[in-house]
Each structure stands twice: as structure tokens, then as C-alpha cells.
């Protein structure tokens, strides 16, 4: 049983300009003790799909009725999509699932001491009393590598550096012992040396706290160095999914290949960069058929621009297998190649 099973997740936003499909038919599992990476560019829906796990997408969002977000809890499986009351959601938010964000300055209340914020959530989500909550908070601040935790406990977030703030954020998220940590671009605002420290910390904590992590990032390098499995998103759909090794060493979807070829790298800095052609379509003009066909060099007229590609297992794998390498591309599906031959 995976810890979390997302099935056919579709999310709409109602805006002044009309309804926008932000996430479409997204399915993935998160197993116990694994780091699942979700990689994509801006507008790919990576943040929106994970925010829906805590129902944080705001009032103008709408989850389609077919969507299933099954979370294993101590009291059995719960469908998060069916929870509507704030009181029910409290079992998920900050209890089973915690979240850390890109900009730790914006995620702490600026006028409340860090320690008070940490103790407050422990009082809400656990049975600890004030003294033990304080002790647990200081203990975990020290565990995430914050020197002088007693001092930091009594400081405000602006008194910490960027790296320390992100460590404090992680400490706060982990103090309730969540089963799942969602890390949304946790190192994007940090310098590389600090990023390496924070990624190493997250990897260590997964084993120590026996939790799972969804790591959202735009950087495939971060995925390669931390995630066990990865889902690649483009315009609200998962276009490729599999173990990190499979997806990075033998990418199948043209978009994944494009991401890798356009990425500057220290190992091949003499090679030219190959940008993806064209621009990201506006969410109001979402392409029909395969969402990537407007920028795909291999798109087949009459097929890719009209029909949604099915999810297929790479090299004959069963796409429902645990570690299967899946992709959604007409070019790789056996029936489509026949059509190409015919035309």
C-alpha cells in the first residue's frame, strides 16, 4: 500500500478570463520512505497538484469529481478530496502532511518569535504540553543543524540568514512528525553551497524520521541528486514518470529530452545549448490533444494535435508496475507508429 495514491487528479481555476485547466489527469503514488521528485517549468502545475493535497489552492479552484487523493492514515485510508470541513482537514494539514516553501521569509510570521510559532502548532496537532513542546522544538532545531537553538528559539525570522531560515522551516515542518513532507522548491532561493547542505539534510531526515517526501523543483540536477523516482510535468500533465535513473539516463518523452538538452551543465560546457522551440502557450489557450505538440519537433499532424496520448510503459513494461518507466507520447505507442507508417 503506498502512503499516498493520487488518481486522475484534475484541477480547474475559475478566473475572470474563463476556466483554466491547471492540472489534468495526474496520477502518481508516493511510497513510504521514498523521495518523489516532481520537475517542471513555470505553469506546469507542479505546485498546484501538491497544494491540493492540503486543499490550499484557494476558493476559485475546483477539483474534478473523478479525482482521488487517497492518504493512508493511522485510522485507515482517507480521500483528501472528499474532506470539506476545516476540522477534518486538520488531520491532514500539519499532522499527516507538512509543507515547506521556496521563500522561508514569507512562510514565517514576521512579528512572532520562531519558538512561539513552533510551539503553537505542536499544541494544536499533538498532545504535548507547553514545556515538552518547547523541549521538542529546541531539540529539532538543533537536529537540523542550527547552532545555538535556545537562542534561535527566541528570535524572529528576520534575524536568521536565508539558509538558517530554511533549516528552521524544515524543523518546524518535521516537529509534528508528519508522514509526508512536501518541499516546494525548498532550495531555489539559496546559494549552491547552502543548497547542497539543505539537500543533504533532507536526505538524512527521510531515513531518520521514516517519512516520505515530495520534492518539487525546476532543476533536474536537484532531482538527480536527491529523488528516488521522478515525475516530469508539462502544462498540467505528467508526461513521463519512472525511477530517477531511468528517466534521466534514458528520457523518452521529447519534452524530457528537451529539458535535458537545454540545461547548461558543468560536465559538457563546450557543447551548445539547444533551447526548446517556441514559447509556453498561455493557460487560456491550452493545446488540444497532446499539450506539448505546439513545441514538439516530432509532432504528427492529425494525431498529436487532436488525440490525447495514452500512458504507456517504456520498452513493453506494464505501466501499473511499481517502478515502471511510463510516458505519454503518441510516438512511442505501438498503434501510433502504425498510423505514421500508413500516412
Amino acid at each position: 500500500m503506498p502512503l499516498l495514491s493520487v488518481k486522475d487528479l484534475t484541477i480547474y481555476f475559475n478566473t475572470d478570463e474563463g476556466q483554466i485547466t491547471a492540472v489534468e489527469d495526474v496520477s502518481f503514488d508516493v511510497r513510504r520512505g521514498e523521495i518523489l521528485g516532481i520537475v517542471g517549468e513555470s505553469g506546469s502545475g507542479k505546485s498546484v497538484s501538491t497544494k491540493s493535497l492540503m486543499m490550499l489552492n484557494g476558493r476559485n479552484s475546483q477539483i474534478s469529481p473523478e479525482s482521488r487523493l487517497i492518504l493512508e492514515t493511522d485510522d485507515g485510508p482517507v480521500d483528501i478530496a472528499s474532506l470539506s470541513h476545516v476540522k477534518d482537514l486538520r488531520l491532514v494539514r500539519g499532522h499527516s502532511i507538512s509543507m515547506i516553501f521556496q521563500e522561508p521569509m514569507a512562510s514565517f510570521a514576521p512579528a512572532v518569535k520562531i519558538g512561539k510559532q513552533m510551539v503553537e502548532q505542536l499544541l494544536i496537532h499533538t498532545d504535548l504540553d507547553k514545556t515538552t513542546a518547547k523541549a521538542r522544538s529546541i531539540e529539532i532545531l538543533s537536529r537540523v543543524g542550527i547552532p545555538d537553538p535556545e537562542l534561535r528559539f527566541n528570535q524572529f525570522s528576520f534575524e536568521l540568514s536565508g539558509g538558517m531560515r530554511q533549516r528552521a522551516m524544515i524543523a518546524m515542518a518535521l516537529s509534528t512528525r508528519p508522514k509526508l513532507l512536501i518541499a516546494d522548491e525548498p532550495t531555489t532561493a539559496l546559494d549552491v553551497t547552502i543548497q547542497a547542505q539543505v539537500l543533504a539534510l533532507i536526505k538524512d531526515l527521510v531515513a531518520e524520521f521514516d517519512m516520505s517526501v515530495i520534492l518539487i523543483t525546476h532543476d533536474l540536477g536537484v532531482i538527480a541528486q536527491t529523488a528516488d523516482r521522478v515525475a516530469v510535468m508539462y502544462l498540467g500533465r505528467i508526461v513521463e514518470q519512472g525511477t530517477t535513473r531511468d528517466v534521466i539516463t534514458s528520457p523518452q518523452h521529447p519534452y524530457t529530452q528537451g529539458l535535458i538538452n537545454s540545461r547548461p551543465s558543468l560536465d559538457h560546457f563546450e557543447d551548445p545549448l539547444t533551447p526548446l522551440s517556441g514559447d509556453l502557450p498561455s493557460p487560456l489557450e491550452r493545446p488540444q490533444g497532446c499539450v506539448f505538440h505546439t513545441r514538439c519537433a516530432h509532432a504528427i499532424k492529425g494525431l498529436c494535435d487532436t488525440q490525447k496520448p495514452p500512458v504507456i510503459g517504456v520498452a513493453g513494461q506494464d505501466p501499473t508496475d511499481e517502478d515502471a518507466h511510463n510516458t505519454s507520447c503518441h510516438l512511442l505507442s505501438p498503434s501510433a507508429s502504425e498510423q505514421v507508417l500508413v500516412s
Binding site: A200, G221, V222, L266
Partner: peptide, 12 residues
């Protein structure tokens, strides 16, 4: 700098 080399060991 995280690279795509899966056998790279980041050295923080």
C-alpha cells in the same frame, strides 16, 4: 552544483 550524473556525490 547538482549535476545529472547520478553517481555524483554532492559535497556540502
Amino acid at each position: 552544483v547538482p549535476s545529472l550524473d547520478l553517481d555524483q556525490k554532492l559535497e556540502p
